[in-house]
Design a protein around this nucleic acid. Structure first.
Length: 789
DNA sequence: CAACTTTGGGTTTTT
DNA sequence: CCCAAAGTTG
């Protein structure tokens, strides 16, 4: 049999997923089922089987930069140099590349800055200083407002369309925030996706350009995409017809596992994967259910838990190697004891394993401390992942801010960070004066500082010196590679000298971090300096915690949160802190949130290849001080008892030996969207043995006529489905419900009238005439349209 | 008015 | 238990 070499070693399902190249494809890939392998092979196979498709016609989206780097590496091995031509990265990195090229029609320059969460908060704080906005300091905290704005952006809603009570300051703040971004030529994190959508919506010719370019699109971790990302994909994939009315294939392959959807707090919508087949009715579906990672026992434990979720696609993971070591349950008297016992167990197993074979996984970052202490005491090397990110360290951010200011002199956030670092006698009052001057002149802070530096006096001298310094950096940036510039900035600003004089352990560490920052830019040295600098800053802006995961060769035990553990695997895993209130976390109250916690636990369990232990403390210290008895997590009880060793089973409180079969999965009543006019459908009551353990807060049915009491801006957004204000709208069940002549509400463009209807179902396009924007063609499926009653 | 010191508030998960 | 805003000193 002459099998294609790229199909070798694949199981039949994997092989099918690789060979199915045309049209929409949903690959439901269970934990450890070899999805990365399928994805890389699929790309290689595509390029081999279809000579007319060039590498640069292929787009692959991953969840983290690290995953992208690994995939690039594997592809390089498979197809060589041409792998460098294809675009492979996170949604954010890909959109950023697009914007650096094409953003100008939106009124930003290509050197726009990117503001991170911290910058967002600073701006919001400043906006809130304006009392006329009417914000209630308790309710409208910068954090709450940031959350509200982020959510609005993830769902692509303009400030006017939040439909809050007229007194609510959120839209005002949102608007002011948008103005600040624009004035500073800056984008926030969500804008990186959102502005591309905006660009494509307003400039069809630019959209078509990218559509022609990316003929084959693949998305990994599809279960963690948010509505904006979905809309982005929808635009790029198109509606099956090209500009000339010829058929155009929708070559979109998504890979995901609904059981591993754990980022809803960041706007991810599990409906994107659950409803894929509704959005693309002609989609092929491949399930990868054979697990190559874990023992049968580990799989049994993990599957037994996640089966209890209602909102999922049924699947059965299996392995050709049943059996394996039973799960161990480790009970500590308190966290220290728990950590001590876990580390004791690691020490015993070190006879058979290396330190890098172990992982300790917990729910919250703060839970790592006792384990760090115990590992230190036992002299076992460990690597803590998470904590402060490299690019978030103060010294790194300070130096980066100088560099950002060179690229974008209008970046007021960067300016504020460095204006008095190192201290140069410009304090709060002086800065206030500068801000006033900047507002008066209508110029960025840096320009205002330059103006003020022309005067006389102490303050003017300080500003003049700063201006001179920045000018020197401008010049240096044009001739030096980024790595040299980092060191130059540290030296010229006096930052380095200050740290050297301090002569403390901490200062030494900071100097080392700056050296590492310089080293991290060395790979960019062959580029033109300013281009390289841009890439350097972008990389810093988009790098996340998972990009700092230690390499497997490192000889240390890995400590990380369950979120960061996604996508990784270890021979021996300890999942720690399995206590009510911690895992599931006490803030996860509703059914949805509980299910997400359960998925998170499932992710943690399925990281283990050979041995898996669960640990919990019988007492624990609470952050507020004081000790309290704990209760073992419901999740531990949900693990089928026979997955545990005989002796550990005794520890588990009695639970019914037979478990009720999961109730049939319900499907959302609304087509596509989670945003339905109805409250969530009543579910059949949960299994009694589950309900008996912890009484969930009674879910209060929401009456659309009753005014809801709002305690925070976030709540208001959550409940925006309720009819409120003057506007009454409804979400149609099917796109067919739209009729010519109907008035509809578009989240971004406002109210318009349908003047034309083309295509059917998921390809339905509406021409809607908006009073402000004129006629626009809208994909009914991509925009969240509501009918105005 | 800037720089240092102390106190008080807030703690899920993060591309 | 860690970071940001008030209080204190030069």
């Amino acid at each position: 049999m002459s099998e294609h070499p790229l199909l070798r070693g694949l199981n039949p399902d994997q092989s099918r997923a690789v060979q199915q190249l045309e049209g929409p494809l949903l690959i439901l890939a269970g934990a450890g089922s070899g999805k990365t392998r399928v994805l890389t092979r699929r790309i290689a196979y595509l390029l081999d089987a279809r000579p007319d498709v060039a590498a640069w016609n292929v787009l692959a989206v991953t969840f983290t930069n690290k995953a992208a780097a690994e995939m690039k590496e594997r592809l390089h091995q498979l197809i060589g140099e041409s792998s460098k031509k294809l675009w492979l990265g996170t949604f954010h990195s890909i959109c950023l590349r697009i914007l650096r090229q094409d953003i100008e029609p939106l009124g930003f320059t290509r050197d726009f800055a990117i503001w991170d969460d911290d910058d967002q908060l600073r701006v919001l704080k400043e906006i809130l200083k304006d009392r006329s906005i009417g914000a209630n300091p308790k309710e409208h905290t910068p954090q709450n407002l940031r959350g509200a704005i982020d959510r609005a952006k993830n769902e692509r809603r303009a400030p006017e369309l939040l439909r809050l009570p007229p007194s609510d300051p959120t839209p005002k703040v949102y608007k002011a925030y948008e103005q600040r971004l624009r004035a500073a030529n800056a984008l926030d994190f969500n804008d990186i996706i959102g502005r591309v959508i905006e660009l494509w919506e307003q400039s069809p010719e630019i959209l078509v350009k990218w559509q022609r370019r990316f003929q084959y699109i693949m998305v990994d971790e599809y279960q963690d995409t948010n509505p904006a990302q979905f809309q982005w994909l929808r635009l790029l994939v198109g509606d099956g017809v090209d500009a000339y009315g010829n058929p155009r294939p929708q070559n979109l392959a998504v890979v995901g596992d609904d059981d591993q959807s754990i980022y809803s707090f960041r706007g991810a919508d599990i409906r994107n994967i659950l409803d894929f087949e509704k959005v693309f009715p002609d989609a092929s579906v491949v399930k990868l259910e054979q697990n190559y990672r874990s023992t049968g026992t580990i799989l049994k434990a993990a599957s037994g838990v996640v089966r209890l979720n209602r909102d999922r696609k049924e699947k059965t993971l299996w392995t050709s190697e049943p059996g394996g070591e039973p799960l161990r349950l480790i009970q500590g008297t308190d966290e220290q004891d728990e950590a001590g016992k876990v580390v004791g167990e690691i020490r015993r197993q070190l006879r058979h394993y290396r330190p890098a074979d172990f992982a300790i996984i917990f729910r919250t970052n703060s839970y790592s401390r006792p384990f760090e202490q115990a590992l230190t005491a036992a002299q076992i090397p460990y690597a803590l992942v998470g904590g402060r990110r490299f690019y978030e360290r103060r010294e790194v951010r300070d130096v980066m801010s100088y560099i950002k200011l060179v690229l974008n002199p209008a970046d007021d956030m960067a300016f504020q960070r460095i204006v008095n670092v190192p201290t140069r006698g410009i304090g709060e009052k002086t800065l206030d004066g500068l801000k006033e001057e900047a507002a008066r002149l209508g110029v960025p802070f840096r320009e205002a500082a330059k103006q003020m530096g022309m005067g006389k006096g102490k303050i003017a001298n300080a500003f003049a010196a700063l201006d001179l310094l920045l000018q020197r950096l401008d010049i240096a940036a044009r001739s030096m590679p980024p790595s040299a510039l980092v060191l130059y900035v540290a030296k010229e600003t006096g930052y380095q000298e200050e740290l050297e004089n301090e002569n403390s352990e901490e200062a030494r560490g900071r100097l080392e971090n700056l050296e590492e920052l310089a080293r991290s830019a060395e790979d960019l040295s062959h580029q033109e300096p300013v281009e390289a600098l841009r890439d350097f800053v972008d990389r810093a802006s988009l790098s996340g915690q998972s990009d700092e995961l230690p390499d497997a060769e490192g000889g240390s035990v890995t400590l990380l949160t369950a979120h960061l553990a996604k996508g990784l695997e270890f021979p021996v895993v300890f999942v720690a802190g399995l206590v009510k209130g911690l895992f599931p976390h006490s803030r996860a109250e509703g059914d949805r949130e509980k299910e997400e916690e359960r998925r998170l636990f499932y992710v943690a369990l399925t990281r283990a290849r050979e041995r898996l232990s669960i640990s919990w403390p019988a007492r624990r210290r609470f952050p507020e001080g004081g000790w309290g008895d704990t209760e073992i997590s419901q999740f531990v009880r949900e693990i089928p008892a026979d997955a545990f060793s005989e002796q550990d089973r005794l520890w588990l409180p009695r639970s019914p030996s037979s478990r009720p079969p999961p109730p049939p999965a319900w499907s959302a009543p609304s087509w596509l969207s989670r945003k339905t006019a109805e409250p969530a459908p009543a579910r059949s009551s949960p299994p009694a043995w589950l309900a008996g353990r912890s009484s969930p807060p009674p879910s209060v049915p929401r009456l659309s006529t009753a005014p809801a009491v709002h305690t925070s801006a976030a709540d208001v957004l959550e409940e925006e489905d309720d009819a409120r204000g003057d506007l009454r709208t409804m979400v149609p069940d099917s796109p067919e419900s739209f009729r010519v002549g109907m008035r509809v509400l578009h989240p971004l463009l406002g109210i318009g009238t349908i003047s034309k209807k083309e295509g059917t179902l998921q390809n339905l396009k509406l021409v809607i005439t908006f009073p402000k924007h004129g006629p626009r063609t809208i994909y009914a499926i991509a925009a969240k349209l509501e009918i105005v009653l």
